[in-house]
Design a protein around this nucleic acid. Sequence first.
RNA 1: GUCCCCAUCGUCUAGUCAGGUCCAGGACACCGGCCUUUCACGCCGGCAACACCGGUUCAAAUCCGGUUGGGGACGCCA
Length: 493
Amino acid sequence: MSEVRVRFPPSPTGYLHIGGARTALYNWLFARQHRGTLVLRIEDTDEERSTQASIDGIIDGLNWLGLDWDEGPYFQTEHAADHVAAAERLLVAGRAYKCFCTREELEQKREQALAEKRDPGYDGSCRNLSAADIATREAQGQAAVIRFKVPERSGTLFYDDEVLGRIERAYSEIEDFVIVRSNGKPLYLLSNVVDDIRDRITHVIRGQDHMTNTTRQVLLYEALEAPLPVFAHIPLTLDIQKRKISKRSHGEVVAVQFYRERGFLPWALCNFLALLGWNPGTEQEFFSREELTKTFSLARINRANSVFNFRPGDEKFFTDPKLIAINEHYLRNLEREELGTLVQPVLEQAGLWQPAYADERRNWYLDTLLLIRDRFHTLNDFATAGRAYFSDNYSIDPKPLARNILKHPQLTEWLPELAARFAKLTDFNSETTEALCREMAAELDIKPGILINAMRTVLTGQLAGASMFDILASLGQDTVVRRLSTVEHLYAS
RNA sequence: GUCCCCAUCGUCUAGUCAGGUCCAGGACACCGGCCUUUCACGCCGGCAACACCGGUUCAAAUCCGGUUGGGGACGCCA
């Protein structure tokens, strides 16, 4: 039984996006499940578009997601000599040939073919050049690319895809493709195969957009006399208009980085991504790493493409609502200490962190997070909607201000009075404050809700929140008294 | 234009390979209710789909053919 070896080969031409992350996740799950090896290989043969920033971004993204690899990162350009050597071998074996057609000629033919609604593929002009002809052209200094010579066979070529079943394509439909540029640099189709052979890749798990590449690469494996890996083409992630998701046309919402910045939990994203195109066949939707690793299987990957349901410009659907729901689930179920650890950097970045939260106020800090997390969607909410718990410098939302404060001008007297009474409490807790508050409401002959909602608004700035008296206990007597004592400024403008 | 892939609620999907247990199940979203000082959680309920046509069969979401629709590829990009 041979070892499972898979790879994730991003091209560093942009950030890591949702689709790429899912491909990485599926490879990672498959590797971990089989106790195999995941190779990270940076496919940087496109020198014009490859950037160091992209490489860093991709690695950062994978690290954040917790998708670790066992070998690499390898860089494809470092093996360019291997790729060219393979091409030379194919040339010698008569499995490839030099083509002197210029880019301009090819471009022109392609456009013309498309305009006439004909097949735009290469017409094979240089396929049967004589040795003398080639020598002459080379002597003249004409540049040549190397093309793979697709065998003249009747019938169809096929491979058995783990997701899609048998895929067939007629030999006659496959055109002679370029494997080495005229400047001597190898191209993806070739490099990718040579590297996969060298890295002893056993399973190629990649997007369905590679299917036509695969049929050509199957030919390359054969010509290079290497065993074929197992192919698994996973469905594509589409936007709501059913367009393939790409960094260029969709911007940041499809970037993994975006979710990190917005306070999503990395495993929530993984869990969501796992379910986008795959399902366990049971009704389970939340998985730990271990559970997912155990349950995942290529055979249960969906054949149809899936839609990543986000609506640009829509605040509520700024990303797929299911992803938000999954994130909320994890946020609510995170263990106390882990939650504390994850929220810390968010508070730090907002300037709300205090060293005491790691020390003498640790308990208060963790209790407070537990108290307020139920209504939050992301980690960032702790620093925004939850700001009043960590700082006196917070703003009051207009909606609760109008509804709970401005509507009752007498609160300018009631709230300071309430503060005064709170100040006298010797045991300030949720029970004593509630009793006191209800007592005062009865005296004034008003509904307790008026005082309670007014307090919520003044103390947290928010329309919604946890049980008010728990909030009071969390905030503490001093803060509560201070904030309730002067409220006139709220009526200012 | 050619080739390849795909087709179940708005979205993610179960069910398709081994036809009947499916007048199609779950989740998210949405709507209503309960709870409640608010909001949320939670709980209860609701709306909502087998693309179409034909064939095979006692029986089709499931098998076959066609149509339509969607996607991908057709680069000296990866």
